[in-house]
Computed example of a mutant assay.
Amino acid sequence: MTLITNNLPEALMILGVLALIIEVAVLGISTFILLFLGMSLFTSGLMMNFNLLDDSLTTALWSNTLITAGFALFLWKPLKRMQNNVDKKGVQSDFAELDFVLADDVDENGLTMHLYSGISWKLKSKQPLSAGTHVKVVKKEVGTMWVEAI
């Protein structure tokens, strides 16, 4: 315990960095609590290191309480807005450029199967396609390929 109290600013900065690493690397910024706490611990340790704050446990407790509350107050809404901003565009890959000739008729019901890469995929199409039509994959979902005629 004396090691921590004798080196309180450094200990606070190390704890802050560890909290930030856990929040970002392990939790993926899903909870903001460790983010605010880590920033607060690092900030108060830095302020103690430059003698802007007294390096005592009482000062560390109160400064971290106030700084954490301040970070939470000012950063909660912007971070929540950033977290809710989800990109909804489809992923493009070489898989989407696959083309082949239909062995059976295809429609929107997805009753036709196509074997590709060892997996049986349901085939669906917005317009009915007959067997023997040359098609390409235009969209993919879990277990389903959407195709259209070339």
Rank of each mutant, 00 (worst) to 15 (best):
V142F: 07
R81E: 15
T133K: 12
K122Q: 12
M47L: 15
Q92I: 14
T133V: 11
I22V: 15
A103E: 15
Q92S: 14
V17I: 12
L73K: 04
T144G: 05
N49R: 13
L18A: 14
M48K: 06
G45C: 07
K89E: 08
W76C: 00
V135W: 04
Y116I: 02
S117E: 13
L75P: 01
N49P: 02
L79S: 04
V91N: 09
I150G: 04
E141I: 01
Q83Y: 10
N49K: 15
V17H: 02
T5W: 08
N64C: 05
L20K: 01
N49M: 11
L8N: 01
F100C: 04
M82H: 09
L15A: 14
I21S: 09
I14E: 03
N85Y: 13
L18H: 03
L57S: 10
W62P: 02
G143Y: 08
K77M: 04
F50G: 03
T112L: 04
L18I: 14
G16P: 00
T59C: 11
K89F: 12
N6K: 06
P9Y: 02
K89Y: 09
M13A: 12
S63D: 03
L129I: 05
F95M: 13
G143H: 07
F50I: 11
S130P: 14
F100V: 05
A25C: 06
L73R: 01
P128D: 10
M113A: 12
K136A: 08
M39P: 02
W146S: 02
T112D: 09
L8K: 01
K136F: 11
G38E: 01
A25T: 07
H134P: 07
D55T: 13
F36I: 00
K80N: 08
T2V: 10
A25P: 00
I29G: 02
N85A: 12
S117K: 11
N84E: 14
H134N: 13
D87T: 10
W146D: 02
A69K: 00
G28Q: 07
D104Y: 05
E108P: 08
M47T: 12
E23S: 05
N51M: 12
N85T: 11
I14Q: 04
W62I: 05
V86L: 15
M113Q: 14
Q83H: 11
D54V: 14
A60T: 03
E10W: 05
M1S: 14
N51A: 14
S120Q: 13
N109C: 02
T112S: 13
K126W: 10
M113N: 11
E10R: 00
L46A: 14
V135I: 06
L41P: 00
Q83N: 09
E23I: 00
A60Q: 04
L46N: 08
M48D: 02
I119W: 10
Q127G: 07
K139L: 08
K77S: 06
V17M: 08
